[in-house]
Write a protein that binds this DNA or RNA. Sequence first.
DNA 1: GACCAGGCACATC
DNA 2: GATGTGCATGGT
Length: 216
Amino acid sequence: MRNHSKTLKEIYRCLYKTFGPQKWWPADTPFEVIIGAILTQNTSWANAERAIKNLKQKKLLTVKAIRNVSVKRLAKLIKPAGYYNQKAKKLKNFIRFLSENYQGNIKTMFNQEAFNLRSKLLKVNGIGPETADSILLYAAGKPVFVIDAYTRRIFSRHSLIGENISYQGLQNYFMNNLKPEVRLFNEYHALIVRLGKQICKTKPNCDICPLKEIKK
DNA sequence: GACCAGGCACATC
DNA sequence: GATGTGCATGGT
């Protein structure tokens, strides 16, 4: 039997040594992290960033401002992020959730146990597992491991997990085999994305994969 | 011009 | 629970 805990640590060290700290999440405030998490859904970060820049420029990156702006104007401003009509509604949905349950106060929302908040976030239309977990880890600073398409691709290619494993299954795999440290979870997910961006697009391409030395 | 990017909701079986 | 589809921009 493979010692998954040991292998996961080994992979982390390898990625960190190769790429260094990724300094996630690139945002000024927890609120900006949340907005960014919604805008970057199935979208390159560069495009999500353009949308955020537009919102900042129009002074719309606050709870109150997004609550008061029309969906139409919001959609127009976030256009570079793609799916702009859907995402405008999603942003509105989150703001409504925040306003109705926590007086629009992010800190109040975060003042509860992580998986309790997680289940509430998942009920907001537009927030799925990855977005919820990104909010919990990168905005709230809670030790929740974020899974994305790269994670499944990379770890199944290295035969550490089945390629059809569910989001929950994969998240449990990481969380059962790693210490629940925010710092570690933060950097680990970011490094996985970093690796995925570089080489794990469509082919394994293991010749230049820094993980090729990880023993099978 | 195809393919991809730090997903998600919804319909259908 | 699994599988298929719409949503949309900008870079390679």
